[in-house]
């Protein structure tokens, strides 16, 4: 199928982009286009106007500053993945990126685009949530920051308002003491996850867990914190029994969504628990 007709404008600056976004009722931002074009090619999305931000100079940069990696909205994730400096500063990011689709998709796809698209099975929204990241948003009412915890409102839904644009993602770099893992279950490499997890632990001098973060993706309408698991880990030594208990509780209170094609809710829950157990073990043993 061919995309329905649309108006196209190439923005040279964020200001340009905002003006263009405000000029049409149904305008969409085009960055890498790797999520948007497939939907448009099925005519499931038929925007009136596409505002191409992929060449905005101010959005094509990324920088590390004050313990935060800030990534502009026009930076393809493959660029981050292949940059040794990024790999050194944020190895978890690179490990996560390698789970996203295939290199040819990552060569165009952007971090901010994935966050704005908010696919519940996508890896990057979960990473943002797990690491307490946020997005910088520009819009008709001025710039603002939205924390990951507030950004994802439902399947393909975000807290972004009319005419707003994600200009960058802010990823806090993992603390030196923290250990992280990312893992997922998928039928084939590169497919969306049937269940996925990003988890991180910090241990104090006595070997007790001083900070725990377990975020699930591909199992609910948004990436979701496994509060049950986190609570069981806090303050504990990460023994096998504790990890077992944490994994068993990982889906407590999580409203798991299944589908007929890829996997049922029951499967996602069961495979997800095993996945959480495996990921926590990797973190606890720091094999990551």
């Amino acid at each position: 199928m061919k995309t329905a007709p649309f108006d196209y404008v190439r923005a040279d600056s964020v200001a340009d982009a905002l003006a263009a976004l405000g000029s049409a009722d149904d305008a969409r931002v085009l960055a890498g286009g790797q999520s948007l074009l497939p939907v448009m090619a099925l005519r499931l999305a038929t925007p009136e106007l596409l505002v191409d931000i992929s060449r905005c100079p101010e959005l094509r940069t990324y920088r590390r500053e004050d313990g935060v990696l800030t990534v502009g909205a026009a930076v393809p994730v493959r660029t981050l993945e292949l940059d040794p400096a990024v790999g050194g500063a944020h190895p978890l990011l690179v490990r996560t990126l390698r789970l996203v689709a295939h290199p040819e998709i990552r060569a165009r796809g952007t971090l901010c685009g994935s966050l704005a698209h908010a696919d519940p099975a996508a890896e990057l929204p979960a990473l943002l949530l797990a690491t307490d990241g946020e997005v910088e948003v520009a819009g008709p009412d001025g710039p603002r920051r939205v924390a990951a915890a507030d950004l994802f409102t439902g399947p393909f839904g975000t807290a972004l308002g009319e005419g707003e644009l994600v200009v960058s993602a802010r990823l806090p770099l993992p603390a030196p003491a923290a250990r992280w893992a990312v893992d997922e279950v998928s039928r084939r490499p590169g497919d969306f996850a049937l269940a996925g997890v990003v988890c991180g632990l910090e241990l104090d001098g006595a070997g007790r867990c001083s900070s725990a973060r377990v975020v699930l993706f591909g199992v609910a309408g948004t990436p979701v914190r496994a509060a049950g698991a986190e609570q069981l880990l806090l303050g504990e030594r990460v023994t096998g029994a504790v990890l077992d208990a944490a994994a068993a509780a990982a889906f407590d209170g999580v409203e798991v969504v299944g589908d007929e094609v890829h996997a049922s809710a029951d499967y996602r829950r069961r495979a997800g628990r095993a996945l959480v157990r495996r990921a926590l073990a990797a973190v606890a043993e720091d094999r990551s």
Partner: peptide
């Protein structure tokens, strides 16, 4: 970069 020309 290798890309999908159907998605550009």
């Amino acid at each position: 970069a290798a890309v999908r020309s159907c998605l550009v």
